[in-house]
Nucleic acid binder design. Sequence first.
DNA 1: TTCAATAGTTCCGATATTCCGAACTATGGT
DNA 2: ACCATAGTTCGGAATATCGGAACTATTGAA
Lengths: 114, 114
Amino acid sequence: MRPLFHPSVEDVRPEAILHALSDPERAAIFAEISGAGCVQACSAVAVVGDRTIPKSSLSHHIKVLREAGLIRCERHGVEMRNHSRCGEIDGRFPGLLASILSAYALVARKVCGG
Amino acid sequence: MRPLFHPSVEDVRPEAILHALSDPERAAIFAEISGAGCVQACSAVAVVGDRTIPKSSLSHHIKVLREAGLIRCERHGVEMRNHSRCGEIDGRFPGLLASILSAYALVARKVCGG
DNA sequence: TTCAATAGTTCCGATATTCCGAACTATGGT
DNA sequence: ACCATAGTTCGGAATATCGGAACTATTGAA
């Protein structure tokens, strides 16, 4: 299998990032990947909140995140490992990802009453 | 004409903001409204870059920005005045709008070679 | 009050996107 | 070679977006 396409940092576009993260499920997936630094396998993030995401949808979400430049995906044996590109992106668009993830975290906290 | 719906600040959702600003034209419109503090009439923002936006599309963009909580719209006589709600939103999601607008500004600068 | 001009909204068909089950592909173990 | 595991692609239904044409709201003039 040929290596997956990843945009270089300088090709990353703000609209792609915002679009990718404008889906709360995708944002949650990205937050988990970023939090863990490296999340092993798509299946590891297949449950968001109380909903199990169908694997075709999950595959699509991962692809959107990858093509937006937000994550880096590598195959290790039979599974895929997803790494956040948070650091790279932050170098280019300082504070962007942090403020987006904080915004979602704030709302999640409120909704859950935690 | 009954007053337009505007969400209160605490009802503003991150996904709505990101979705609204994930369209570069809409982001440009919002940037202009925010820059001017108050932009008079939709027609004042009807040209983005080198493209003139059809008025039905513009009306739609303004509606999306309004319903996301990003702008406040008031009719003054025959025209609409659009105010940025940047301050309110920043109180709730600190740094979010600033980093998004900066990201777009950075890319625009690069593309235009200015 | 009637008419015209201006500013924006709504309608609706064409196009594009999203969602997800089913079928398919890739890799590792036996 | 075969099976199991992990993920991707296909395809069609549901949904969203775009924009021209028709419509509505407001002001000002006759």
